[in-house]
Write a protein that binds this DNA or RNA. Structure first.
Lengths: 152, 152
DNA sequence: CCCTTTAGTCAATATCATTGACTTATAGAC
DNA sequence: GTCTATAAGTCAATGATATTGACTAAAGGG
């Protein structure tokens, strides 16, 4: 049985590759499921995942500059421009000039923006919360160890 | 300390939400890192991630029909049509009529297609292999438990 | 007064997906 | 053999998105 607690014992090359491929598929399907909830809510407002990412990271880094957001999301200025402008236009994100350096715009969530962001991310947090409760703290920590390894 | 083995003890609502948000970010950044390698290789040939997904699942389900592939990828017929036609045109995927039912096309990787698929997925398998070796079998299994929970 | 940085925009182009309708070929039931 | 259903493929129209490159405007700092 693949993925049994001792799958790696007596492992041939073939089912070793198989185990890695199943891990790839887990990532693919899990990520798809993970983004499905917010995507549905966003679609009702004519928004998409890129808007969620902006709302999310602006919420996490209150007052972040446009440049810093570009680097965090790893997208081009032009790719960010359209969705960000929409969000500012819908008054979900504010972009007042920074006090010290008026060239820099400080991006913040408005009250409305925060509400939407929490609704979007809330579906994902509920998903994770349920799983983490099910599997327990050890599994949760091990999961994080693996995930951290994936971008280092 | 967030994410310490006993982070959930004496947890306030605020840093509990913080822990869940860090998990969300782990997923986002890990997935991005995970797809970056194949994306670079694909770009050299004028292909993109959707081509990789087709190559991947055709490789995993040799002889799969177009309909079944549509359902697996959860995309529309028209969204699949263009990239699949390219892959057939480049002779990376074959689509011979099935023996029993000549309406159904059996999608298979050609020798060239298999070579490219293994190169693409190979970068991801190497990534995972390294991490799984680092963290050990227990963490690997716990990681899978969590990932499986995410689409059930 | 230059030079740099930050933000924002425009034009042109290319890609990508979506809906809906349609054709072709085959299978299976009667 | 006719009728209906299924599988695949295509086309047109549309809309959304991203990309490159160049450009303006405002502000900061020596």
């Amino acid at each position: 049985m693949l993925f049994s607690p001792n799958y790696y014992i007596n492992m041939t090359d073939v089912n070793y590759e198989d185990a890695l491929r199943e891990a790839i598929e887990l990532l693919y399907f899990a990520y798809r499921e993970f983004t499905a909830g917010p995507d549905r809510i966003l679609a009702q407002r004519g928004l998409n995942r890129s808007h969620h990412r902006i709302l999310y990271f602006v919420g996490r880094h209150d007052g972040i500059s446009v440049m810093a957001l570009l680097e965090l999301l790893a997208v081009s200025k032009q790719a960010l421009n359209a969705p960000l402008r929409q969000l500012v236009g819908m008054e979900l994100v504010s972009n007042a000039p920074a006090a010290g350096d008026r060239r820099r715009k400080e991006l913040c969530l408005t009250a409305e923006g925060r509400k939407l962001e929490q609704r979007l991310t809330g579906t994902q947090m509920k998903q994770l919360e349920k799983i983490f409760e099910n599997v327990g703290p050890q599994a949760t920590n091990q999961w994080r160890r693996v995930m951290r390894g994936m971008y280092e």
